[in-house]
Design a binder for these strands. Structure first.
Length: 274
DNA sequence: CAACTTGTTTACTT
DNA sequence: AAAGTAAACAAGTT
């Protein structure tokens, strides 16, 4: 499932494939994947919306952008947000549409960059302006904040792990990297966010971008992307390792469900009290 | 076949 | 009233 490192890797791939190229056609194979707003409820898009995306034919792809787990491409004067959901990915191929292809941007020369999205949780959404990409989101998690700056984004009694997944506070952390960053920082994921002490915020502020940068550096090329871990090596320190010994202190890793999501942590490295 | 996955919304509870 | 929690949902894979 794409988290920030995967989204950034896709953005770079699209940038190389598309920027500077002229589009000869836009193929909308699944109209409900083109949405007026970001929403999980697919609904038939207004005809004007489809006309608007198809009006990109003849335009040049000018640039790309990313904020948190959202990415965007600029087609002529128009910015389009692409949200990958859980199964969104891209494929550059001929005009033959691959399985689950929803939208295709045809380049001059006949190649097509297909947006594939098996579960259709993702979609393509028009932006009024480039800056709208970050609407409703906190700062991008890949950028470095200091401890007090990070701490200021969070308050209340929510568990710190649950709060870190709130994209309005900090944009880009998903379930896996939130757990990994808390392990790096030595913070119990169940601790109320208002009770995390300043030195722990300082460690977390360093751990979050470090975790994401490391994951980004280890991303395979987009041709080799596989989202579902099909029995391959688990590269994570705690995620998916319930009852296994911690690689740092050998304590048995625990699992608990928070906000409907699995959380993993090491009680040895991430003590319940400061 | 039930569990699992993300992000959003809706409906409750504190 | 506001903040927090839980469940539902989108749909497919294992």
């Amino acid at each position: 499932m794409p988290e920030l490192p995967e989204v950034e890797t896709w953005r770079r791939a699209l940038h190389g494939w598309m920027v500077g190229r002229r589009l000869s056609a836009i193929h909308v194979l699944e109209p409900t994947s083109v949405r007026a707003t970001l929403s999980t409820r697919p609904s038939p898009p207004a005809p004007s919306l489809l006309r608007s995306i198809e009006a990109g034919a003849g335009c040049e792809v000018v640039g790309t952008d990313r904020h948190g787990k959202r990415m965007a491409i600029q087609v002529g004067d128009a910015w389009w947000l692409v949200h990958l959901g859980m199964t969104g990915r891209f494929e550059r191929s001929g005009s033959e549409a691959p399985p689950h292809a929803r939208v295709g941007w045809e380049l001059d020369g006949g190649e097509v960059v297909w947006f594939r999205d098996a579960r259709r949780f993702g979609g393509v959404v028009p932006l009024g302006a480039r800056g709208d990409l970050a609407d409703g989101l906190g700062p991008d998690a890949l950028h470095t904040l200091d401890g007090p700056q990070l701490s200021r984004r969070f308050s209340g009694r929510r568990a710190v792990k649950v709060a870190l997944l709130d994209q309005g506070c900090l944009a880009g952390l998903g379930n896996i990297h939130a757990a990994e960053a808390l392990w790096r920082a030595g913070i119990d994921p169940r601790r109320p966010v208002g009770e995390v002490p300043p030195d722990a915020w300082e460690r977390l502020a360093a751990a979050i971008p470090a975790q994401l940068h490391d994951a980004l550096a280890e991303m395979p090329s987009v041709e080799d992307f596989v989202y579902v871990t099909d029995g391959g090596d688990n590269p994570f320190a705690v995620y998916g390792r319930a009852d296994e010994p911690c690689r740092r202190c050998a304590t048995s890793i625990q699992r608990v469900v928070q906000g409907g999501r699995s959380t993993f942590w090491c009680p040895g490295c991430q003590p319940a009290s400061p």
